[in-house]
């Protein structure tokens, strides 16, 4: 779990993760929001099916991949939270919408 320091400024934003509501701060990346709620893992890998989570927080490791608003393999650390955003954990190779 990552906790928010007292005196951290910002408006609250609500998104859902795996169907459950998550409150976070405007300006957070999706990765920061997930970590703030104790989700260290956000997907299972394509090759070995093992859990992974954010690692570098700067968009170069591609481990923080989640499905955002139906689009798979989005980097959580490079995407800012938005009110009503729907985030889902990924498992294995991505889906392809017909």
């Amino acid at each position: 779990m990552f906790r928010r320091l007292d005196g951290t400024a910002g408006t609250t934003v609500h998104l859902t993760y795996e169907g459950r509501p998550l409150a976070c701060r405007e300006g957070d990346s999706v990765a920061a929001a997930l970590l703030a709620h104790g989700h260290a893992a956000c997907r299972d890998t394509v090759v070995g099916g093992v859990p992974r989570g954010p690692y570098c927080m700067m968009g170069v490791c591609y481990d923080c991949l989640v499905t955002i608003d139906g689009q798979p393999n989005r980097q959580a650390c490079m995407t800012r939270v938005r009110e009503g955003m729907v985030v889902q954990r990924q498992s294995g190779p991505r889906e392809v919408a017909p």
Binding site: M1, F2, R3, R4, L5, G7, T8, A9, G10, R25, G27, D28, S29, A32, L35, A36, M57, M58
Partner: peptide
């Protein structure tokens, strides 16, 4: 980065 951009520290 979590500290600088979101004010988060590990608990």
């Amino acid at each position: 980065i979590l500290l600088k951009s979101s004010g988060l520290v590990p608990e």
